[in-house]
Amino acid sequence: MQTVSMIVPCFNEQESIPIYFKAIEKVFQKPSMQNYALELWFIDDGSPDSTLSELKKLNTQYPRTAHYISFSRNFGKEPAILAGLQAATGEIVGLMDVDLQDPPELLPQMLQELTTGNYDTIATRRVGRQGEPAVRSFLSNLFYKFINKVSKVEIVPNARDYRVMNRKVVNTVLQMPEVNRFSKGIFSWVGFRTKYVDFENRERVAGTTSWSLWQLFEYSLEAIIDFSTAPLAIASFVGIFSCVISVLALIFIIIRTIFFGDPTAGWPSLAAIVLFIGGIQLFCLGILGTYIGRIYSESKHRPIYVINEKK
């Protein structure tokens, strides 16, 4: 019998946890799942609600199945995923959201595909975004197009974190100690044979999403910076472009002065050029500073998360 460790990050999910547990328990009670033992690792990412209380109830009722790790504060989903990967003991390790937007009924098919030995990872992707705001869908599609243009690692569009992996993949991912993590990119970077299972978009079973549009935007920027140096190249290009524009403007001013004189004092155009060049410099310094900040974060060697309770 193989143990399947499912990692379930949680933040303010007190309503979803009991529903999720019943749903996944039902899946593992199917005859086709008799060869698998379920191990659940819930990661409470510093939730201010009663998420931890719900996890403690589950652990009391099902001590062999439902385990939990509680962070000392909110560290983010990526540290929660890492904590789960480090805690999981199963030969097969899975990752899914607690809100049931990742359908548990796909697990039998995913595990069957994985145990054939033809693949090392069975991942999932959404084939539609029904029910999602149009702006969020547009920005998501734009993000995938952009990052796949500038990154050497292909990030599969609409891929979910929902996946199952063999121990070889998990051990390889755990060898990557960076503080700034983007799991979808890391899973793609390590390679291995991966198959994607498609499913239609689903609504949350309870509660509301903790991801705002701005947080998703910041997460996208982190992904681009973590897996591409293109922003640095863009900054260089912008600097060269601004220099060319400045030279052309200078030539234009000289020619105009020779043939038509200088009817104005020239300070408005000078002020505009100075502000333009200053803005370009600040833009480029901002990009450079972001990368330097990442280096600074990595060099401090602080723990990626702090555990308050674990059981």
Rank of each mutant, 00 (worst) to 15 (best):
A206V: 00
E54C: 12
K311S: 12
I7C: 01
L107E: 11
K300T: 13
R73W: 10
L85Q: 11
P31G: 05
E13W: 01
A271E: 09
G90I: 12
A159N: 09
A123D: 04
E25R: 13
G117I: 15
F237K: 07
T209I: 10
K195C: 04
T290W: 03
Y196R: 05
C10D: 05
I225L: 12
G46M: 08
Y291R: 06
G90V: 11
K300A: 08
F260P: 00
F146E: 03
A206I: 05
K310A: 09
F217S: 05
R256A: 10
P9K: 00
F241V: 06
E113N: 02
V197C: 06
I280F: 07
Y68G: 02
G191V: 02
I253Y: 12
P133A: 06
R125D: 03
F146M: 05
T290Q: 06
T172N: 12
W267M: 10
Y219F: 15
A249R: 08
W211I: 14
P177A: 08
N12S: 14
Y219R: 12
S16I: 01
I224L: 10
I19F: 03
N180I: 15
I24M: 04
S246C: 14
R202K: 14
S269Q: 12
K57R: 06
L221F: 09
G131E: 08
P157E: 09
V93E: 04
L52P: 03
Y162L: 09
M33R: 05
F260R: 00
Q14R: 09
P157K: 06
T257E: 13
K184A: 13
K145M: 08
V8D: 01
Y162I: 11
N201Q: 10
N180Y: 14
I253L: 11
M1S: 08
I224Y: 04
A87K: 14
L106R: 08
T124D: 04
I240K: 09
E105N: 05
D102M: 00
S212A: 05
C284L: 01
Y219D: 14
L139W: 03
Y196Q: 07
N201H: 07
M96C: 08
L275W: 01
L52G: 09
V205T: 13
N148P: 07
L288Q: 12
S137E: 08
A223E: 13
N180W: 12
T116G: 06
M1L: 07
E309L: 12
L282K: 10
F146D: 00
I43H: 04
S72C: 03
A83G: 05
T89P: 00
D49F: 03
V4D: 07
K195E: 10
Y196H: 08
V27C: 11
V93Y: 03
G239Q: 07
A134P: 02
L55E: 03
F187R: 01
F227A: 04
V164W: 15
V164K: 11
S137Y: 03
D102A: 02
G76C: 00
S5A: 11
G289C: 05
Y68Q: 02
G117V: 15
V93L: 03
I122M: 03
F21C: 01
S16A: 15
R126A: 07
L275Q: 00
D99W: 00
S228R: 08
N171D: 15
A271F: 15
P31F: 02
L270S: 09
A272Y: 08
K152D: 15
Q215W: 15
F138T: 09
H301Y: 12
S212E: 06
S188I: 13
